[in-house]
Design a protein around this nucleic acid. Structure first.
Lengths: 225, 225
DNA sequence: TTTCTGAATTATGAATTCAGAATCTCTCCC
DNA sequence: GGGAGAGATTCTGAATTCATAATTCAGAAA
């Protein structure tokens, strides 16, 4: 028998949901901005039906906000939401760290080390885009090693809701230093295969991040007023 | 000024999404069953457009599975998915327990005690329906006390995906005994306001539950073959 | 019989249409 | 000048329509 051909076309709605997500996360649509159905239909070359399905999906994920008879807007994020989300992400990433430690191979450690080095280098020469890329990759790798797909998906679902702060509050350099210090500790615990410790440090890392973000946010808010 | 009128009719799609969810969770539509659009349009008295939007939403939550050009089916659950989901729920409920302990009032404790008593009573006279109701209420109350809305929502989102096992595997009585014993310990730790301990016990409780469910599932599967 | 083929039927995905709500605009009046 | 309100316009939500893919079923061939 021939090799089975994997022809899996997705529906327009799924495709559009992904495009919408990307638009929101990349900042193509800023928090609070109105989602113009007609314009998006034009740019994507589709009718309103699948686009509206996509909007409903992305709204159910929390990236858009629907108001009856008034359409969709890009979701905004408040300090109290951030204060809620970070501990959850901490619990999830703590679990990921524990699972990852149990499955950690030397090859994994090499990849983590490489990313950690990138993070440090980017911090040292202030390449903040590189820094956040490598940082994201580092955290994603931990989830990948943990090998729990649902865990990663749940985490990602919360993570995307945080994206909005990027457009409101910039992290000051000392927040990076704290993060790098956290990572140092995490790497040490990983190398020692102390899963409980890895979990604890990741929870604390997210807690530190939460404080830094909230501080940056309130600074931005008071500067605006 | 008059009291603001709460005439916020939700969209049909949102309404239908909730009905669909209820249908799936209540067992009105069993795992693996096809979602008949025409029949549902008929029963709900709506056109296909909002119904299909609702289907897309509920599918994005993981309760339905979409296959291109082949419509929607009620999601089924596998042992490996359960093995993934329970640790996540454990991490979340562990966090909820820690947060709840920090905010615990004596009034809260009374309500928890009342539910715990109901659970024990239902176990003793084998009222399974009462048991699971009181059990759910107990766990929900912990999240309510914790006061983190996003945490509860995330937990619920995972919880509903577990519903499908009810139709496949029944819990044996000794699993209930274990659960009641776990609850005893959790109550004691709550009364002592040992938040760390509450978290630890809740994680272990969910871990025990996972093992019980997986055992029941594999028993059901081997019985079926 | 059983299995294969292809037309008829049905279901799905997406575009279009339609009704009603929200928004805008222009006039009129103070 | 500065609203208040009628009417036009635009936008949203939902029904309908249409094209195409999947399924069913009758009939032919083994």
């Amino acid at each position: 028998m021939m090799h089975a051909s994997p022809i899996t076309r997705r529906s327009l709605a799924e495709e559009l949901a992904e495009r919408l997500r990307d638009l929101v996360i990349s900042g193509g649509l800023l928090p609070g901005a109105k989602v113009d159905e007609a314009a998006l239909c034009e740019t994507f070359g589709v009718s309103r039906t699948p686009l509206r399905e996509a909007i409903k999906i992305v709204a159910s994920e929390g990236l858009l906000t629907l108001t009856p008879n008034r359409g969709a807007r890009v979701a905004t994020i408040t300090g109290s939401e951030i204060a809620e989300l970070f501990p959850i992400m901490g619990a999830l990433e703590g679990l990921a760290g524990e699972l990852a430690t149990a499955r950690l191979t030397d090859k994994h450690l090499l990849r983590l080390d490489a990313l950690h080095d990138q993070i440090c280098a980017s911090r040292n020469n202030a390449k903040w885009l590189n820094y956040s890329k490598a940082n994201r990759a580092f955290h994603e790798l931990i989830f990948e090693i943990a090998g729990n797909v649902a865990l990663q998906q749940t985490y990602q679902g919360l993570m995307v809701r945080i994206h909005a702060v990027r457009f409101v509050a910039q992290q000051p350099p000392d927040a990076w230093d704290q993060a790098v210090a956290d990572h140092d500790g995490i790497m040490a615990a990983l190398r020692a295969r102390k899963s409980r410790e890895v979990g604890r440090l990741l929870r604390r890392h997210l807690d530190n991040k939460a404080h830094a973000v909230i501080a940056a946010l309130s600074a931005a808010l008071s500067a605006a007023s």
